[in-house]
Computed example of a mutant assay.
Amino acid sequence: MAVPKRKMSRSNTRNRRSQWKAELPQLDTIKVNGREISVPRRLVKAYKTGLLEH
């Protein structure tokens, strides 16, 4: 495991963390019970089988 040789300043730590950005999930449009809804791709199967309701 990597171990830092020196303490990192609070400014540098926060600056590094602020560069991280979450990505929006890819949405797929599916038809459930005659309605079109946009759901994340990983949940399409669950909606089609009826495990989740919108």
Rank of each mutant, 00 (worst) to 15 (best):
T29N: 12
V44H: 01
G34A: 01
V3A: 11
K7M: 06
S18P: 03
R10V: 04
R42T: 09
K45W: 10
V32R: 04
L43Q: 08
Q19M: 12
K5D: 05
R10F: 00
N15T: 13
K21R: 14
G34F: 08
Q19G: 06
V44M: 00
V39Q: 03
R41N: 09
T13Y: 12
K7G: 07
W20N: 13
K5E: 06
P25Y: 02
N15W: 10
P40T: 09
S18F: 07
M8V: 15
K5R: 14
K31T: 14
R42L: 12
S38W: 00
L24H: 07
P4V: 03
Q26I: 15
N12T: 02
P25Q: 02
R10C: 00
W20I: 14
Q26M: 10
R41E: 07
P25E: 03
R16Q: 06
K7T: 04
P40N: 09
Q26W: 11
R6A: 13
V44D: 00
E36T: 13
Y47P: 00
Q26V: 15
P40D: 04
V32E: 01
R35A: 15
P25K: 02
M1R: 14
D28M: 14
I30V: 09
R14N: 04
S38H: 06
P25M: 01
S18R: 10
V3E: 13
S11V: 05
K5F: 02
K45M: 08
M1N: 12
V32G: 05
I30E: 02
V32F: 10
R42M: 07
N33P: 05
R6F: 11
Q19F: 05
Q26K: 15
K5C: 01
A22F: 12
S38L: 04
N12K: 12
N12S: 06
E23I: 10
K31N: 11
K7D: 05
N12D: 11
T13R: 13
E36C: 10
N12I: 00
R10Y: 02
R17T: 09
G34P: 01
R17H: 12
K31I: 09
K45L: 11
A46E: 15
K5W: 03
V32H: 06
L24G: 02
L43C: 08
R35N: 15
R41V: 08
R6D: 04
A2K: 13
P4F: 03
R17N: 11
T13A: 06
L27H: 08
N12A: 10
S18Q: 12
N33E: 12
G34M: 03
